[in-house]
Amino acid sequence: MSATFAALGEFGDAISFIFSERENQRGSPVGGSHNLALLWEHLKLSAAAMGLAMAVALPLGLILGHTGRFSFLTISTSNVGRAVPSVALIALFVAFFPRSPEFLNVTLALALLAIPPILTNAYVGVRQTDRDAVDAARGMGLSGAQVIRQVELPLALPLIFGGIKTSTVNVIATATIAPLVGVVTLGDPLVAFSVYGREGQIGASIIVAVLAIAAEIGLSAVQRAVTPEGIKLERGPEGRARSRFGLTKRRIQTAP
């Protein structure tokens, strides 16, 4: 019983750290509004990394998907990407580019982590568009660029935003360890126990968690918003029944 109370008590301290300023052991102010600077740095870092990752991965994924080339390579990047630990990637940049600014190093490392899901989803999204619709589009005389813009891109949007969502949440989470190499994000209270104390550690963790979940929810809403109406209908219960119908139809077609 008392253990539970103690636990609640620590969360209580943490929540008070989030909202009210106090002095740390060294006499400098932390908590409350001082968290805003950390939050700002966290967002700045995440946005920079995501911007860079999207600028690289989206066009590449769309073009590779359109041409259907390098399928194995594209799919593999996401498998390999998952296996590379974020802390190793950040350390690699710091170890090999000791003279470049830490913010830049971490941005590049996070962008590298963010690229595979966006690239793969854009690629798969385009590849998964109904190839018959693409064939019909080409047959009607749409140029390559028109096929991408009018058919493949709109149909791939839900998956593309799925990739962006995965990467964003991942980047926000990983930006938490940036203070290990001197970029002072919301992870600072987590790794600098001696400065912020336990309520700082837990408090900042709460903020990071809320941030990640907010990104997930927000981007899910965007994902729904960009999903073309006709695609939602296809997926609905009625649509699912139809696609089952489609399967039987295809079987008739291939019968000798």
Binding site: I172, T176, L190, R198, S205, V208, A209
Partner: peptide
Amino acid sequence: GILYTLPSVALFFLLLPL
């Protein structure tokens, strides 16, 4: 899904009191 979205690093510290 929420557990998946929660950054692991944050979870390490959220579990501290428990």
